[in-house]
Structures are given as structure tokens and as C-alpha cells.
Design a protein around this nucleic acid. Sequence first.
DNA 1: TAGTGGTCTAGACCACTCA
DNA 2: GAGTGGTCTAGACCACTAT
Lengths: 230, 230
Amino acid sequence: MRPHTHNTIRENMLSRIQSGEWALGDKIPVETSLAQEYGCARATVNRALQSLADQGLLIRKRKGGTRVCKLPVRYAKFEIPVIREHVEALGSVYHHKILDMKLSSSTASIRERLRLDTKDKVLRVDTLHMADGHAFAYEERWINIAAVPAILNAPLEQISANEWLVKEVPFSNGDVIFSAIGADKTTAKALETHIGTALFTVERTTWSLDEFITTMKLYYKEGYQLRSRL
Amino acid sequence: MRPHTHNTIRENMLSRIQSGEWALGDKIPVETSLAQEYGCARATVNRALQSLADQGLLIRKRKGGTRVCKLPVRYAKFEIPVIREHVEALGSVYHHKILDMKLSSSTASIRERLRLDTKDKVLRVDTLHMADGHAFAYEERWINIAAVPAILNAPLEQISANEWLVKEVPFSNGDVIFSAIGADKTTAKALETHIGTALFTVERTTWSLDEFITTMKLYYKEGYQLRSRL
DNA sequence: TAGTGGTCTAGACCACTCA
DNA sequence: GAGTGGTCTAGACCACTAT
């Protein structure tokens, strides 16, 4: 193995930051100096520095040089999985049940979230996701028929709308909102719990190429925890 | 501007995925072909492809070629800010109040989280974060004195432990857990709400260079929403 | 074993921005 | 104006792995 790849250089730089050799706010040497120090090409140093800058540890400015970020912005990254895979990753057997499904006109709030016209139709699907036969999460979903007409012929009893959309829609952008909410009558019944129980919820709206696809709200069974690394 | 920088190439490739020209699961052309097609060096194409692979849209294998990911893994990225900045970004005036602070032996559960010995001392700080004079979030924090002894001399009335640690500890790794929980007596009182109210909570444990720094649990006032983009 | 991506190099030019 | 990072190039060799 070469002694100094962009990877080992990045790690070395990270430890120089962690150890305080490059203190918060400090200007660090220019790329050409570092290339000389590490005995490699400037492009290699550049790649390592860019990677650290992407992570938010460094701020780089032309002419201004590179500085260690004073208040490094930290990110928590959550994988947004297909719920079936999530349940299976937890070691349980997954299945789902459609509680309600109907084609209807959109309500005002859904129209706003999906940027729809009054005349547009939406497919409303309520799904209960289950792990080992017990309620895991309750999903309320609205789908823009105009964007994915094929959903009307999808075997949603076999494959949940969640999974079908992930597999059929090429790529999408989305908003996510996490919050806590007390269970209402509907969600309490679906999740076999009491009204008022604190539930972890995720709302997600997705679109692709400027067309709105779907919006959903997911209520997790009480006690659910979403874990991640900084 | 050059017609084909790694950036414009990446965007073009993304639209080819979104449009379905490169369908889910398909193998896409090799780097040399793409370089010819875009009229640029292979390194430039490589940079664009790597960026898309980092995003989880492509899977690349030597000899195997590059494929469009069948189940693109989507990530939600949340910024973990200093609470003061978070409150100020919402347009409110921030201040904080220390409700309790004491040096003590660690309890078993905290020892486990911070990987401490029975003899190690921890600083326990309970802080109320406020926006425009109203409760915003309640924080329970335990700090490993051995890792950051300077915390004992920090003016925690002026600068919250949260902010002090972010500014003084060079860089840290961490675990994060999001969940929903019903307010207990202590949290309900601190947040001026009722017992049982659904609260959004964040637990965070951080360490740097294999030394555990701090662990905390944050209870947000009811109605709080954490927003992000996919 | 051969094809593909992973990475490095040396040099070049450009774009930004600080002084 | 000059220093710094941003990016591209053409070529090279290496590492992995599908066949």
C-alpha cells in the first residue's frame, strides 16, 4: 500500500484537527506545502481537503486559504428504508395490511402538500405495517394519480405502497419532518395502544422532476427509536 | 464556462436516471465511453460518477461496471446545531437557565453510556433552553470530567454546556437517538406542560479520539418539528 | 485472465477574493 | 495584482472481480 493515498492523508489531517495541532479557527498550510509535506501531488491533497470540507470541518476560500471550522456543523444522517427491510433488519417477520384505500378528490391540505389542482384525484391508502404479527407502524398516504397512474394496477396487498413507489419511481426528492404526537382515536386503535400515547411520527413528501408523487405520515408504535451516527 | 464540468455532467446523468433513460438496475456505459460522449477526460466522468455513487444512486464495481441502484438508499440529513443558533434561526431571542448542576459519582446507566469506571466523576447539568422567554427544550447532560476538566471553570451561566462543548472540543463522533416520549413530572414542569404530553426527544453521546466526552437527553417542547430534505 | 473502476501525477489554466 | 483553491487533462499503474 502506498504510504499516502487521499484516504490516509484525510485521516491524518482529521487527527491533526482532533489533537488540536490545527486548532478551531486556524488557517492551515496551503495545498502546495501540504503536497510537499505528504510527498504527493497537489490533486491528492486537494481531494483530502475537499472531503473534510464537505464534512463541514474545514472552510476553504480562494486566496483566503483553508481554515478549521470554528463551529463545525454536525449532521446526523438517517437512512430512509423500505419499512419491510427495516423490520427485517430488526430480526422480525414483516407483513402489512391495507386498512383503507380509496380514490378521492384531494382535500385542501393535501392539495397544498402535493401542489395539486382542485380537479386532481388522489389515491388514499392507510396501511398497517406489522412485525411478528404485532403493529409496528401506521401509515396514511396520499398518491398523486396523475404522476403514477400505474399505482392503480399495483398489487398493493402483496407489496406495500411504500415499497412499490420506491421500486417504481426512478428517483425523487423529498421533505421530511420528524415529530412527536399523542395518539388520536384512529392511530391508537391501529397501533393497539391508548389515546394520548406519545408516538414518533415521520411525514414525507416526495417529488421527481417537478412532479409531486406522494405524501405520507407514519406513526410508529410507542417506544420506537430512530438511531444514527453523527 | 466550459460546456462539461464534473458538475454539469453529474446533473445530466441525474436527469438520465430520473427520466428512465438509465433505468433502475441497468448497467450504464463504462467511463471511457462516457468520457468520449461528453468530450472530456475520464477523470472528470469518474468524479461525476463517484458523486452519484456517494449519494447512493449508483453502484460501482471493478470489472462489474456501474449500475443504477435498484433500491436507492435515501438519506435524510439533519443539521445538529447549537441550540442557541437553532432558536435564533427561528427568529427568536435565546437564553438559557441552569436548573441544576452538581458533581457526582456516575450512575450505572451513565457509566455504561460513557464507558466509565465506577470511581470516575461526572458533572450533571440540567439546562432549560428558552426562546422569547418561553421554554423551548429541556436538557439533561452528563459530562466526563476526566475528558474535559476545563468545563469546571467554564462560565456555564453565560454559555450553555452545549455550546461550550461544541466550541472547545475539537471534533467528536457521536450516536444519536430520536424518539417520542410522554412527559414525566420533571420534564412537564420544566417545559410548562402536562404529564403525558408527547415530547420529541434526542439523545446524544459524543466521544473524541476514543475518549467519551458527554451524553445528553434533550426534550423539546410539544409541537416541535425537525425538518429536513431527502 | 481480462475488463473495469480507483487512484495518482505533473502540469496547466481559471475564478475568486483579499489586501 | 497576486495568492489561493477549483478544475481539467492525458497518461499511467494498480486492485478488484466477473467470467
